[in-house]
Design a binder for these strands. Sequence first.
DNA 1: TTGTCTGTTGGGCACGTTCCCAATTAAGGG
DNA 2: CCCTTAATTGGGAACGTGCCCAACAGACAA
Lengths: 338, 338
Amino acid sequence: MGGRQRPTIITVAARAGVGRTTVSRVINGSELVSEKARAAVLAAIAELNYVPNSVARGLKTSRTNSVALVIPESESRLGSEPYFSAVIRGVSTALAETRTQLQLVLVRDQAERDQLTESVAERRVDGVLLVSVHEHDPLPGLLEDMGLPTVLAGRRSSDESLSHVHSDNAGGAAKAVNHLLARGRRTVATISGPLDMDVARSRLQGWREALEKAGHEATDRLVTSADFTEEGGAAAMRSLLERVPELDALFVASDVMAAGALAELRRQGRGVPDDVAVVGFDDSIIARHTNPPLSTVRQPVEEIGAMIAQILLEEIGDPERPRRRVTLPTELVVRDSS
Amino acid sequence: MGGRQRPTIITVAARAGVGRTTVSRVINGSELVSEKARAAVLAAIAELNYVPNSVARGLKTSRTNSVALVIPESESRLGSEPYFSAVIRGVSTALAETRTQLQLVLVRDQAERDQLTESVAERRVDGVLLVSVHEHDPLPGLLEDMGLPTVLAGRRSSDESLSHVHSDNAGGAAKAVNHLLARGRRTVATISGPLDMDVARSRLQGWREALEKAGHEATDRLVTSADFTEEGGAAAMRSLLERVPELDALFVASDVMAAGALAELRRQGRGVPDDVAVVGFDDSIIARHTNPPLSTVRQPVEEIGAMIAQILLEEIGDPERPRRRVTLPTELVVRDSS
DNA sequence: TTGTCTGTTGGGCACGTTCCCAATTAAGGG
DNA sequence: CCCTTAATTGGGAACGTGCCCAACAGACAA
């Protein structure tokens, strides 16, 4: 019901009494149009309620004005991990100003992964944003080979070749450790993330360096890795308490894992912060609601999202532009758990 | 670097020694192709690594194989409100099976709203999913007039004309109230959501009906509205305690607001659940981490997302298909707050 | 042999736009 | 008044695909 056929650029041209090309020029803001013609065209556009067909335009210009944001659903579930929501918000904000559309791709398994590269090959997007990349993830290299602009939130390793934005993970971890030491703690253990992710390695490294700098030993005995989930955090806490019963402080590489660790500490009757002081990482919403509220390292996730989007737009505009590496500062937020 | 020109259907036809149309037929699975020709075409496709250009295809078929998911960012922030993440996950799951792309549109203000309708008018999407609609929101009607398939998560009012999926809000609220009454509570107040949203009205109605059915009065004195935020929940709690100091039970229309209410109760020295028993709504992740852990009404949000996506795909396939109204059941989850 | 029928095949056209380039008009100088 | 130059303008082609329809080959019956 409702509408007859949509008007095309030809309808508008006829109505305005000019040629197609003139209409096209007006739409695309060319200077080579007389004031009179421009006025006539604009009037016709308004009367007919004309909107350019972006698909046809895309066919001719081979630009789609949309970018894909790829989020792996498997390891860190959107929803339980507010990090991804914040990235989405930042990306969306940066994109909104430029009329660029956002394609959200949640990748669950390898099959969807393959489908993704195919859809990318279809040139349905002008560029790709990748979040939460693992060290040996083949996707970034694939995209690079295809010549498709790609920007990462995070990086595969410290010598990442693609443009990327990440927060100062090592520095943030160091702030957490220094804070714990300043509180007079002696044995600062850590629950790390999966070590095939740079973000986990960097936070671990920050923990290690801060301890050593302060003259403490940072042995592997004090380290347990988990998978960034709450259950993983609880399990890691269990094994850590068994191995290092004397620990009096803990740095956890994510708030979600820290929530699991807090629950486990409570189960085992250890008081927080009296027996064990805990600091997390991310300052996600969950940190304000744990019991006790969690001290944590805040990273500017929304800003990361905005910045990867902005860099991607720049690289789409000029693919030869040199790659960029951006590190954003972190901030310690002290609550009741330390 | 990397690739020369992408192969087109003509390249493939030449390589296979057939015509363009035959290639097209093979790609689209037509029966009218000899085995020999099909084999030749498939071989050529594989050799050349050919992938159809979906933009060109979209121009011809006026189908884009993508749908938009519109989320209002203003009133309920993605991230603090896990509801939206869950919807996204459900939608994405349902879409993944059909090679339909998901365009995520976060709408912050009126300007972006206008831009949205324009982008929709550009026919960049085959259909639209709307989340968190308000009663007098003009957007659903606009889309309906444009003849663009539209499905809502939630509804504008009880006589919603568009297809929609929502959970049994009134029933869920009634479950919560009956549970509180069964615990022996006498004065069950409620913090409602914004009353221009059906979801808030329905939960309020469920609260009212359950109380009246049990022979209690459900006066307006026991009701305060807030805006689904944590701060709003705290403020509502404050005003409620002032007006109804004798309340011993509380039904809150969302977990996030309930978290704010719990904090306020703690500030005012009221014990939960001893002095006041509290039940929320949503079973979002935050409910497990409040102090004490929050009893709540679980609604199948991910399922809602999957279902609106599925219905939308059906309506895209056949626009004349009758509209659907789906109500999904809720479930009471009892934790320590009641 | 001829004609009809079934099963395949490929050329032409259209989808709505942008870009190239030639054509037209207006302006300015001798 | 005519020629040169600059400013506008619009027609034709192309982007890569799907669909209409005419053409073709082979089989079979008459």
